[in-house]
């Protein structure tokens, strides 16, 4: 019986160590506490070009993540991308004339949506659309324009 008791204790310690490791991975390594974009309210925006934006890309305001991209669609009437964002319900006072731009984190980093608050008194609600948008900056186009303007001189 002594032997089986020490076996049980060791197994208990092992399970605790394993659970602690899992917990560390969940809490310390992953973004469990960050907003996951599941129970937010949806707003949409149209962009001429979204570049490398993906579903689950962050939506930030003043650099703080306030939501995530939940869906990317294409409007075949006007040939524009329709991006649906899910915004954390804690931030329910985004002015109606908020503008959305697609930025790149660093020179080669991933792309995200940056929101900039306007001055309107009324707020965006579930299903609303952001009117003012600015498309992604495509590096190749930028370089092309630069070369053309140099050639003109």
């Amino acid at each position: 019986m002594m032997q089986s008791r020490s076996v049980q204790i060791w197994v208990g310690l092992f399970v605790i160590a394993g659970m602690a490791a899992l917990l560390m991975l969940a809490m310390k390594v992953s973004n469990i506490r960050a907003f996951s974009g599941e129970e937010g309210y949806a707003i949409t925006a149209r962009f001429e070009n979204i570049g490398g934006l993906k579903v689950r890309s962050p939506v930030t305001m003043a650099g703080v993540v306030v939501g995530r991209v939940s869906k990317i669609g294409f409007d075949k009437e006007i040939y524009e991308a329709v991006v649906t964002m899910s915004i954390d319900p804690r931030y329910d006072n985004l002015p109606e004339d908020t503008s959305a731009s697609i930025f790149t984190a660093g020179l080669l980093g991933e792309q995200y949506i940056g929101l900039e608050a306007g001055g309107a008194e009324t707020y965006l609600r579930d299903g609303d659309r952001i009117q003012l948008t600015q498309s992604a900056v495509i590096l190749e186009q930028l370089i092309g324009q630069f070369l053309v303007s140099q050639a003109d001189k």
Binding site: A17, G18, A21, L22, M24
Partner: peptide, 15 residues
Amino acid sequence: IAMPLLAAIFSAVGI
């Protein structure tokens, strides 16, 4: 049962 716990420990210690 043991394998996922071992893998989690491996990853955690590795990090």
